[in-house]
Nucleic acid binder design. Structure first.
Lengths: 343, 343
DNA sequence: TCGATTACTGTAATCGATTACAGACAGAGG
DNA sequence: CCTCTGTCTGTAATCGATTACAGTAATCGA
C-alpha cells in the first residue's frame, strides 16, 4: 500500500501539504499532488485516520438473528438511510447468544461511532456499561427505562394486540389463546399486556390455560400450539406474538390436521413472506420494519452530527413509536358451531 | 478511553512491559499491571493495533441483498464458522447497486483481512483491481475464469437443473418452460445450460418460446410467468432458476387463477421458507446454503493463517462445488389430460 | 571471585495520517 | 526602503500500541 509519504516524495512536497490538499485546502502544487495520487493509486488509510481523529466513519448494527426476516428488513432500512451519509454499516449477528452479543458490542464500540442494537436481555450488565460510555446508541424494540441516555425506536405493540383481539372478538370469538414471547423483553411483555388489556376491555375471559409464554422461536411456537390444541377445552382462535412462533404454530396445526380457520383462527404479529400464498393466507399485524430501521438510522446519524457541537449533547433522548396495522387475510373467520355449545 | 500509557503509569512500569504482559510474556510486575488494567477498565485499541500490525482481525462479507433468505443463510453459516476464530465479521449490503458494491469493496479492503463476496457483475473492473491486490478473496456462486487468484465456492447448478428436468420428464411433461437468471452470472448461465442439456439428453424439445431470461428478482419472475401463461401454447411445467423469481411466479399464477399442479407443475431452485405450508407445498432444488457460507469462511480463514508463512502463498486457489438435492413436495404432478391433445 | 548466561526492563522507532506552530515569501501601504 | 499582512509551506508532535535494541540485575558454574 502506498502511503502519504510516498505521494509527498513523488510530488516533491511535504506530507502536510498533501494532507491539506486532500482535505480541500488550496496549495501551490495541487496539480503535482493530483498526479502523484493518480499514478500511485493512493488512497488514505482509514485506520491511521481514525487513530488520529477518534472517528471511524462507521456505525454498528447488532441483531440476534439475521435470518429472521424482520431483522433483515430492519438492516435494509438502516442501510438505505445511511448510504448517502458516507458512513459504513458494520453488521454483527449475535446468534441469540448473550456472550457473543457482549463480544460484538465490545468489538463494535471500538470500530464504530455509534450503535443500533436490539439487545437480547434488557437488564444486561453490558448495557449498563455501555450507557456509561459516551457512544451514541439507538435501541430497537427495547423500551429500557433505566437507560435514559439511549434513543429508542419502538412499534405500538399495545395497539397491535388490541387490533388483533378486537378483530377476533368482532368475529365472535371468546376463547382466544395467546402465544407470547419472553416477558423480560419489551415486545413479549407489551404484546402480552396488550392482549390481556384488550380482552378485559371487551369483557372476554382471560383464561390462563389459554396463555403460553414462549421464546419467540419457531420450535417454541410449535410446541405451544400443539399444547394448546391438545387441551380438553380448545381455543377457537389464537394470537401469536411474532413471526417465527407463528410459523411454528402453523406447522404444528398442519401436522395435527387442524383446518384453518374452520377449527381455529390465527393472527400473527409481524407479516411473513409469502403470507398471501399460504393455505390459507395469513391474517397478521404488520409493522413498518424497513421504516423502523430507517428511523433508527436517522436518529443515530443526527446524534453523530450533534456530537460535533458538544453543548447540544445535553439534548434529551428520543423515543419514537411507529404504528402497526391489522392485515386481514384468510386465516380468521367466525368460530365454527362448536362455539355454540360453550355459550 | 484509557490507554496503555495510563496503565503503565498506574502500574509503575513502562508501556513495553504492559504490552508484553498483555501478550502473554512473563513479567515481574504482572500483578500490578493486572490490577491497573482492572481498575482502569483498560482494553487495547484495535485501531492502534491494526495500524501497527497491518492486520484487522476482521473479515468482510458483501452480499447484494440481505433480505434474500439465501444470503441471510449464507451469512449465518459464515458467522457460525468464524465465531471461534476470534475474527469479526463485517457485513456489507450492496443493495444490488454496482457503484455501492464498489464503494463497499474499497472500504472493506481497508478494514478487513479478507473478503467473501458474491459479486453483482462478473467482469467488473473492481474485481480486476481486487485481484491485483493481495487481499484474500472467496467468491460465492461465481465461477470467474480470469480471476484465478480467488477461491470459489459453488453449488452444482448443472446437476440441479438436470434433477428438476428429469423429475418433470418422469412425470410425463414434455412442454417444460424455464425462467432463468442473467446469463452473465454463473448461476443464471449454469442453470440455463443445465436445463438445455438435460432436455436434449432426454430427447425433449427445447422451445425458445418457453424460455424466459429474467433477473433473479420477484418482479421478473412474476412478469415472466404471466407472459408464459398467456402464450397460446402453454407449458405444462416450469423450472424457475431462483427463490425470488419462484415467489414472483407463484404470485402471478395465484392472481391468474392457475391451479398448481393441475394446470402447471412448478419446480424452483433454492428452498423457500414455509415451502411446506404453501398451497400446494413447493417442490424445489435445495442447496446447502448455510454450509456454503461455512465452507467459504473455512477457505478464507485457512488462507489467512497461511499468510503467516509466506512461502505457502504460491498455493493454488481452491474451487469447491457443493451438491444440491431435489425435494419433491406437492407442486409437481403428471400433466393434466390437456397434454394428451398435444401428443 | 569472575565471566557467562538467563530473565527481565526501558528507551525509542515505527505504523500513516493530521495539525499546531513557526518560518518564508510575496504584495500592499506608508 | 521598510513594515505589515496574508498565504502558503515544512517540521515535528500526536493518536495508541508493538518491538528491536541495549542495558541491568540475578544466578550459575568454574
Amino acid at each position: 500500500m502506498t502511503n502519504i509519504q510516498e505521494v509527498a516524495r513523488v510530488a516533491g512536497v511535504s506530507t502536510a501539504t498533501v494532507s491539506r490538499f486532500l482535505s480541500g485546502q488550496t496549495v501551490r502544487s495541487g496539480e503535482a499532488i493530483q498526479n502523484a495520487v493518480r499514478t500511485l493509486g493512493y488512497s488514505p488509510s482509514v485506520v491511521a485516520r481514525s487513530l488520529k481523529s477518534g472517528r471511524h466513519g462507521a456505525i454498528g448494527v447488532i441483531v440476534p438473528d439475521i435470518t429472521n426476516p424482520f431483522f433483515a428488513a430492519l438492516v435494509k432500512g438502516i442501510n438505505h438511510e445511511v448510504r448517502a451519509s458516507g458512513y459504513q454499516v458494520i453488521l454483527g449477528n449475535s446468534d441469540e447468544d448473550a456472550p457473543q452479543e457482549e463480544a460484538l458490542l465490545a468489538a463494535l464500540t471500538q470500530r464504530t461511532d455509534g450503535i443500533i442494537i436490539a439487545p437480547l436481555v434488557e437488564g444486561d450488565l453490558s448495557l449498563v456499561r455501555l450507557e456509561k460510555s459516551r457512544t451514541p446508541v439507538v435501541l430497537v424494540d427495547r423500551d429500557i427505562t433505566f437507560a435514559t441516555r439511549f434513543d429508542r425506536v419502538l412499534v405500538d405493540n399495545l395497539s397491535g394486540s388490541r387490533q388483533a383481539v378486537e378483530h377476533l372478538a368482532a368475529l365472535g370469538h371468546r376463547a382466544i389463546a395467546h402465544i407470547g414471547g419472553p416477558l423480560g423483553s419489551t415486545p413479549g411483555r407489551a404484546r402480552h399486556e396488550g392482549f390481556v388489556a384488550a380482552m378485559e376491555r371487551l369483557g372476554l375471559p382471560v383464561r390462563q390455560d389459554l396463555i403460553r409464554i414462549s421464546d419467540f422461536r419457531e420450535e417454541g411456537g410449535r410446541d405451544s400450539m400443539r399444547d394448546l390444541w391438545n387441551q380438553p377445552d380448545r381455543p377457537t382462535a389464537v394470537f401469536i406474538a411474532n413471526n417465527l412462533m407463528t410459523i411454528g404454530a402453523l406447522n404444528a396445526l398442519h401436522v395435527l390436521g387442524a383446518r384453518i380457520p374452520h377449527d381455529i383462527s390465527v393472527v400473527g404479529f409481524d407479516d411473513v413472506a409469502l403470507a398471501e400464498l399460504l393455505d390459507p393466507p395469513l391474517t397478521v399485524i404488520r409493522r413498518p420494519d424497513i421504516e423502523q430501521g430507517a428511523a433508527s438510522a436517522r436518529l443515530l446519524l443526527s446524534r453523530l452530527e450533534q456530537d460535533f457541537e458538544p453543548d447540544a449533547s445535553l439534548s434529551q433522548s428520543h423515543r419514537i413509536t411507529l404504528p402497526v396495522q391489522l392485515v386481514v387475510r384468510g386465516s380468521t373467520s367466525a368460530p365454527a358451531h362448536r362455539e355454540r355449545e360453550q355459550e
